[in-house]
Simulated scan of single mutants.
Amino acid sequence: MKNALLRPLLEVALLLLVALGITRWLTGLFGVRVKLLRLSAGRQLRLAFWPLLALDASLSAVSAMLLNGRSAQGFEWVLAAVFFGLTLTLSLPAFVLHVRYWLLNNGTEVIFQPEANQFEIYEQGQRQFFNYRDILKVERVSCRARRTFWVNYDYLRLHLADGRILTLTSLLGDLEPLTTFLRSAPTERRAVAWCWV
């Protein structure tokens, strides 16, 4: 039963990945080299893949125990519960960060073209006006816990002269090229165990 459900899901996921790859390749061939950072399904799936996979594995173990409830021994229930608890403990921080970053950057778009010295941020369709000299500080926060599910969740904060703080998270895309582009502003790099904004 598990294979009957898992195989079609994996086939659909593979087809989606191939379609996204072909689309990205075609747009790269005919498009201008402008980076548009925004929330995309591919990026979200890439960040949440391992936590979802671990949670799915533990849920399949628990569901197998529920289906064979009468023949399962007590220690099997304990092992299934420990496995579920462990994967939930490892996955939950990544899910919490994912939801938090989605709430922060839903409707945010960044147009970034280093060759033309173009950098624009749009929030809910409204452009956030500022000049490079208005950026007082760039704060780049990354995760130092290397073997966790939330290692790829990081963020960049732009502290502006008028008091605004613009937060760009890893759900939008890779933030390292943007940090390099903004190197003229004072940059503070920090590594924390969990990148909560």
Score class of each variant (00 low, 15 high):
residue 56 D to P: 04
residue 145 A to S: 14
residue 116 A to M: 09
residue 126 Q to R: 15
residue 87 T to Q: 10
residue 174 D to T: 07
residue 155 Y to Q: 07
residue 131 N to S: 14
residue 116 A to W: 11
residue 114 P to C: 03
residue 114 P to V: 08
residue 71 S to T: 15
residue 74 G to C: 04
residue 161 A to Y: 06
residue 131 N to G: 14
residue 64 A to Y: 10
residue 153 Y to K: 00
residue 153 Y to F: 15
residue 69 G to I: 14
residue 97 L to H: 08
residue 172 L to S: 00
residue 117 N to K: 13
residue 60 S to D: 12
residue 176 E to G: 05
residue 117 N to D: 15
residue 73 Q to F: 13
residue 143 C to L: 08
residue 91 S to L: 02
residue 58 S to Q: 13
residue 108 T to F: 03
residue 167 T to Q: 08
residue 132 Y to M: 15
residue 169 T to E: 08
residue 154 D to P: 01
residue 103 L to H: 14
residue 153 Y to Q: 08
residue 96 V to S: 08
residue 100 R to I: 05
residue 179 T to N: 13
residue 168 L to R: 06
residue 59 L to A: 13
residue 117 N to I: 00
residue 70 R to H: 14
residue 70 R to L: 13
residue 89 T to I: 01
residue 56 D to R: 03
residue 55 L to Q: 12
residue 181 F to K: 10
residue 129 F to P: 04
residue 155 Y to H: 10
residue 151 V to Y: 13
residue 138 V to A: 07
residue 147 R to T: 09
residue 124 Q to W: 05
residue 154 D to L: 04
residue 113 Q to G: 07
residue 70 R to P: 10
residue 156 L to G: 05
residue 90 L to F: 00
residue 95 F to S: 01
residue 134 D to E: 03
residue 160 L to V: 09
residue 92 L to F: 09
residue 146 R to Y: 09
residue 96 V to Y: 09
residue 146 R to K: 14
residue 117 N to Q: 14
residue 105 N to Y: 00
residue 118 Q to S: 10
residue 64 A to L: 12
residue 95 F to E: 06
residue 119 F to N: 02
residue 112 F to K: 02
residue 130 F to Q: 11
residue 123 E to W: 06
residue 56 D to W: 14
residue 107 G to A: 07
residue 172 L to R: 00
residue 141 V to H: 10
residue 100 R to D: 03
residue 55 L to G: 14
residue 151 V to M: 07
residue 106 N to D: 09
residue 165 I to N: 00
residue 95 F to K: 00
residue 180 T to S: 15
residue 181 F to P: 08
residue 81 A to Q: 00
residue 156 L to K: 06
residue 129 F to A: 11
residue 145 A to I: 05
residue 80 A to S: 14
residue 59 L to C: 09
residue 102 W to L: 08
residue 55 L to F: 13
residue 110 V to R: 04
residue 116 A to Q: 15
residue 63 S to Y: 11
residue 172 L to Y: 05
residue 91 S to G: 05
residue 130 F to Y: 11
residue 115 E to M: 07
residue 120 E to I: 06
residue 138 V to K: 04
residue 141 V to A: 03
residue 148 T to P: 01
residue 85 G to A: 11
residue 102 W to G: 02
residue 122 Y to E: 05
residue 134 D to S: 11
residue 84 F to R: 03
residue 162 D to P: 09
residue 136 L to R: 14
residue 159 H to Q: 12
residue 78 V to M: 06
residue 151 V to H: 12
residue 158 L to E: 04
residue 59 L to H: 08
residue 163 G to W: 02
residue 99 V to A: 11
residue 74 G to N: 14
residue 110 V to S: 01
residue 85 G to W: 01
residue 169 T to V: 08
residue 64 A to F: 12
residue 118 Q to T: 14
residue 129 F to Q: 10
residue 132 Y to D: 15
residue 160 L to E: 04
